[in-house]
């Protein structure tokens, strides 16, 4: 049975969470991993990313490229 959007979103979230602080993932990195691991398609991955961002579980960040990360305090922001 094909993985649902929710399954893919949860799997993506776990990868990003495990990598937090050591590795950053681009949306295309996560998509490639999901296509390989869950045998899902790019359209489902796109919907999963949208769900993760719209729900606030992940945020887009930009530091030398766009990445998906767990929301955290901006390092450059004043206290």
């Amino acid at each position: 049975m094909a993985a649902s959007i929710e399954d893919v979103a949860n799997a993506m979230f776990e990868i990003v969470k495990d990598g937090a602080g050591s590795k950053k993932y681009k949306p295309s990195d996560l998509t490639k991993m999901m296509v390989e691991k869950l045998e899902t398609d790019k359209k489902t991955c796109k919907a999963a990313i949208k769900e993760l961002v719209n729900s606030g579980r992940l945020v887009y960040t930009y530091f030398g490229g766009s990445f998906l990360e767990i929301p955290h305090k901006e390092g450059a922001a004043p206290d």
Binding site: K50, N54, G56, T61, P78
Partner: peptide, 23 residues
Amino acid sequence: KHGGIVGVMGYGGGVIGRYSALP
């Protein structure tokens, strides 16, 4: 200073974060 997280909910573009290094 370069900010890289600020934005509006659901969007990944459109906001370019900047902070003063001498707040």
